[in-house]
Amino acid sequence: MLTISSAMAQWQALWPNWLTGFAVLAVVAFLLLFLHSVVMNALRLVLRGRLAEFASRLLKRIGPPTRLGVLVVGLGVTLQGLPERVVGHDLVEWGLLFGFIIFLGWGAITIVNTASEYYLRHALKGSEDSMLSRKILTQVRLLRRTIVFGLGFLTLAAILMTIPAVRQYGVSLFASAGVAGLAIGLAARPVLSNLIAGVQLAVTQPVRLGDEVLVESEFGTVEEIQTTYVVIRLWDLRRMVVPLSYFMEKPFQNWTRQSTSIIGAVHWYLDYSTPVEAVRARFLELLKESPLWNGDVAALQVTDAKEGTVELRGLMSAASSGAAFDLRCEIREKLIAWLQEIYPHALPRGRIEVENFPAYPPQGVGGRHH
């Protein structure tokens, strides 16, 4: 008959300590996952309809990072409570530390994303002011991306510092080689300058999403503002990609900085005999008939007088740059057609004036004979 001591000896022979330790950790991990699922479901059921919208959204998204956090903390406590160190104990501890750092970064990023989406949802709800909406959208998105990038960078740096080889290399590098550290700083300058420019742009907002800008002699609409660059959709559907730092260091034109409305100008070069008052009256009539005119600015003036023509400039306003361009084309075309029909003599003409000179006296009359 087997005694208890012999049975324990056989059990230890079949199940060594390291395998027992890992089995315990596996069972604890399963129980922790089950407990986390039960608690999260219970919270959703009990607090349904009682939570604010932000808390409800956060509860839906915080599940994966909190699951990782529960696993890391629970397994860490269990590992410290084992009677004997298992094989690879140090490696398991490092993995748990690694997971805990990821949990902190992941959870922080989830909270930032949820808070920004909640704020945008309520700030833009029922807002009819497009300028205010674009301002809020630009600020929140830029700040969110900058904060998420910073959190991701800090998380990665903390993970790397848990690796002894990397930590020792980094300490020795910056302690004994200041020149190398300066070189790394200079190499990272474009990235850092764009990140800083992103924060400045979010606060000061010289350019926003949807703004119509003139950059490097190219006109387009701001389509995307990313962490380090801006995408501008040009009028012919090309895309211009510009670093964020460009908008903080170089001049550019923002056609919708204060308002989306804009003034367009059309020039006509007509004959001096043109009845300006009649042309001005017809110009105003055409503007009133056009649905593109927003009713703010309408003026026609003689702005120059050249050798063969006079220059008439018509000013008109529209709700956007695209509408202003179409309005200019429409008024230019219709006024020319009206001039051709009613005042054709007002179109530019070339004049030649010939003077009659007296004939020379005939030979022999008051002249010399040859």
Rank of each mutant, 00 (worst) to 15 (best):
Q168R: 08
Q168M: 04
A180N: 02
L173R: 08
I225T: 02
D211Y: 10
A175N: 13
T155H: 05
I159E: 11
V207H: 01
A197G: 08
V242T: 08
V179L: 10
L209V: 14
P243G: 05
R238D: 12
L214K: 13
A165W: 10
Q200G: 05
S193F: 04
Q226K: 15
G170C: 04
A158V: 12
L195I: 11
D236Q: 12
A158Y: 11
A175G: 07
P190K: 05
S193P: 00
G220T: 06
V171H: 07
L201V: 10
S176H: 15
A165F: 11
A188H: 05
S176M: 09
V242H: 01
M248A: 13
A158I: 13
A188W: 08
V203L: 14
S217L: 10
D236W: 10
M161K: 00
P206I: 09
V213S: 06
T204W: 11
N194I: 04
E224P: 00
A197R: 03
N194P: 05
G220V: 05
S193Q: 10
G210Y: 13
T162K: 11
V222C: 05
L201R: 00
T162P: 08
L209I: 15
S217T: 12
L237E: 15
L209Y: 07
L201H: 01
L244E: 01
Q205V: 03
P164E: 15
E212W: 08
V171Q: 09
L237H: 14
S217G: 12
E218H: 14
Q168K: 02
G181D: 06
R239T: 08
M240N: 05
F219E: 09
I184N: 07
V166L: 11
G185K: 05
G210P: 04
F153T: 12
V191Y: 13
S172P: 05
W235T: 15
A158R: 09
G198F: 00
A202C: 08
R167A: 13
A165S: 13
V207G: 01
A187W: 10
L192E: 01
L173F: 14
L151G: 10
R233L: 11
F153E: 02
Y169M: 10
E249L: 04
S172N: 14
A180G: 02
V171G: 01
L201A: 02
L244M: 12
Q200W: 09
G220C: 07
G210E: 12
F247S: 01
W235G: 11
V231F: 04
S193K: 08
I184R: 01
L209M: 14
V215R: 00
I225P: 00
A157R: 06
R233I: 02
L186S: 07
R189K: 05
A202W: 02
L192I: 14
A188N: 07
L154P: 07
G198W: 00
E218K: 09
L237M: 09
G181H: 04
G170A: 13
R233C: 09
Y246G: 02
A187P: 05
L160F: 15
S245G: 06
L195E: 03
E223D: 14
N194K: 06
V215Q: 03
V199N: 03
A197F: 03
L192D: 04
L234V: 04
L209K: 07
E224M: 03
D211S: 14
V241L: 11
L156E: 12
R167E: 04
V207S: 03
L214S: 12
G181W: 08
A177R: 13
D211F: 10
V241G: 00
F219I: 11
V231R: 02
T227A: 15
L151F: 07
